[in-house]
Design a protein around this nucleic acid. Structure first.
Length: 208
DNA sequence: ACCCAGGTGGCCC
DNA sequence: GGGCCACATGGG
């Protein structure tokens, strides 16, 4: 049986919903190829404060124009930011997000050359670098790290906050406080973090 | 005609 | 450090 409330919560969610596999969101089944990882990274921006469906519509537009890789987006933005913005329009806040996407792809390509190298980066340093980019806050940075790059960082979002409140884990809603709380009580394992967060979202949507 | 959705930055105090 | 606002779409 679970030693603490948080790993116990994971067990309960697993018992209730089973293994989340890829069901939590289309663009974020556990990516296997670098191409899928790039899609996850792009999706992390597109879903900010957006209905998933709308983020998917934006991704579909990018796909239709063969603009789903980091390099494609960077080159398109370099040439025509307005075109990039129009493609992702369904995701909302699209002018801002076009700028965010361009900045993120530029960072990854210029600073690291691509996914292969960025995956080797030291985690703490990379997280700081991501947070320094415009439009990348803690949740987006950690989603990129956890789901795009398989780094062991626990993602906190609105669903996690609601759950923590509901299960009386804490009243504190602060991002890094909650992140530390979950990480402290779990084995440091990106697979576990991925599955747990997925289950939290599934449960949050289910109990609405 | 509202209200909401897996956020972030900028400003104010 | 916390409170408030802008950013924008598609669906219920």
């Amino acid at each position: 049986m679970a030693k603490n409330k948080i790993s116990g919560l994971y067990q309960k969610l697993r018992a209730k919903y089973g293994h989340p596999k890829g069901q939590w969101i289309l663009w974020c089944k556990r990516p296997k190829t670098d191409k899928e990882r790039e899609e996850v990274i792009i999706g992390a921006i597109l879903t900010q404060r957006a209905n998933w469906r709308n983020a998917e519509l934006a991704l579909a537009n990018l796909k239709k124009e063969r603009m789903k890789s980091l390099k494609d987006i960077y080159k398109l933005g370099l040439k025509n930011k307005k075109k990039l913005a129009l493609l992702i329009r369904p995701s909302g806040f699209y002018r801002q997000k076009a700028g965010y996407l361009f900045g993120l792809t530029e960072f990854i390509l210029k600073k690291y050359g691509g996914l292969k190298m960025i995956k080797k980066a030291e985690l703490g340093k990379l997280r700081e670098e991501l947070l320094n980019l415009k439009g990348i806050g803690p949740e987006t940075a950690d989603s990129i790290l956890l789901y795009g790059l398989d780094k062991p960082v626990f993602v906190i979002d609105e669903y996690t906050r609601r759950l923590a409140q509901k299960r009386r884990l804490t009243k504190n809603r602060d991002y890094h406080f909650l992140q530390a709380l979950f990480e402290k009580n779990l084995k440091k394992d990106h697979r576990l973090y991925q599955d747990f967060h997925a289950l939290i979202v599934i449960d949050g949507k289910n109990s609405k």
